[in-house]
Design a protein around this nucleic acid. Structure first.
Lengths: 203, 203
DNA sequence: GGGCTTACATACTGCTCAGTATGTTGCTCC
DNA sequence: GGAGCAACATACTGAGCAGTATGTAAGCCC
């Protein structure tokens, strides 16, 4: 019999549940993640979870908004600001976040991509929020490429939005295929092909 | 009370179940596809299904081997033989199978990609078979690009295997993103970017 | 044409899991 | 310091679903 928490803290509890839910969902998908399994990753029980989240779906929405959005920005957008040439930055991020990832983690795929595949057609609200994440990601990359155009690293003739879309598309693709093949060997050749494409965009 | 079939035919029954299972799984994913829902698409019952397939997983394996493999070859590999320039063929297939697809169908994503996302980490045997499909697809594209090299449409310096991997990766990516955005508008810009990349490979 | 096997149909079981009803304890505020 | 509410804990319920046990009819063989 689990003893009630000595110290109560709504925000901390919420964060703990979100963290556990993200890990569980990332590993197993939304449907296969039972509430009980999520709670086993914490020191909490159903009372705590349903006190904060109206339903399992509601928890899922919160994972998208409060975990996946900031994670996406932190991993794939914010670091680009440090590069003079954003295209070079994108290549390095792919190498860092995919190429240097462990086989095990790579086998889990992309947290965003996984949820899109699983939930996009199941629940319209889920789709809305996932769509929003992609938009945020694409827009973030677009801004950086626009900056590269301004600074002269990227050709004036390129359409920043189109390139940003292509970048996100291909990153999701390499996540998906690497997950299916369970083999990182596609990553270096992928980076090399991406470099070929970027060369055609560089000033 | 459903009457037993007047005429029995093991092969036809198997084909009917596989067809129904594919459609259901394509639309809802493997886990969300209940046996009952699959059977509702047919005139059959559980007796017929479990007579042919030992388990739901076994049915899933058969869908991969007997539906998805031939479909992938028929849609993405075989038509390339009709093009003098395989790279041009690939672009046209993307336009045909994705660009000209209905919003509804596009929202369903790629049958192969969907299963990879959902099942790759759940069941090793599923992963083995899905991995095999990707390999078949990549090899098929590789062969065609190799042909393009021989016929002088593709630069001698290109690595056919690497390009084939990149092509499959990006096609899976555009399926995934289009599914998430539920918007075909990414397809034309994607094709355009792909054309830019291919231009760097053409002799 | 009768018997036997196989291709099905049907009713049932047991489990998993989201959600709920209800209980209990820490915290705050006066 | 105790009343009241919020933050949890726990036991239970009902639905959905894979799989099974068993029944029944069609088709082949002799």
């Amino acid at each position: 019999m689990k003893r009630p928490k000595k110290t109560r803290n709504l925000a901390e509890t919420r964060a703990a549940i979100l963290e556990a839910a993200f890990e569980e969902i990332y590993a197993n998908g939304f449907h296969a993640s039972s509430i009980d399994a999520i709670l086993e990753r914490t020191e909490l029980t159903k009372g705590a979870l349903f006190h904060q989240f109206a339903s399992k779906l509601d928890l899922g929405y919160a994972v998208v908004d409060e975990v996946i959005v900031p994670m996406t920005l932190e991993r794939w957008v914010a670091p680009l600001a440090a590069f003079d040439d954003p295209l070079e930055g994108i290549l390095q991020l792919v190498e860092r976040h995919i190429g240097e990832s462990t086989q095990a983690r790579l086998g889990l795929g992309c947290p965003l991509g996984n949820l899109i595949q699983e939930m996009s057609n199941v629940d319209p609200e889920f789709r809305r929020r996932l769509r929003r994440v992609i938009e945020i990601w694409i827009s973030g990359v677009e801004e950086q490429i626009e900056r590269g155009r301004a600074s002269g690293h990227v050709r004036r003739s390129v359409n920043a939005r189109a390139v940003a879309e292509y970048v996100v598309v291909t990153i999701e693709g390499v996540f998906a295929v690497a997950k299916g093949l369970r083999d990182k060997s596609v990553v270096p050749t992928f980076v090399s092909s991406m470099r070929t494409y970027f060369a055609a965009l560089s000033a």
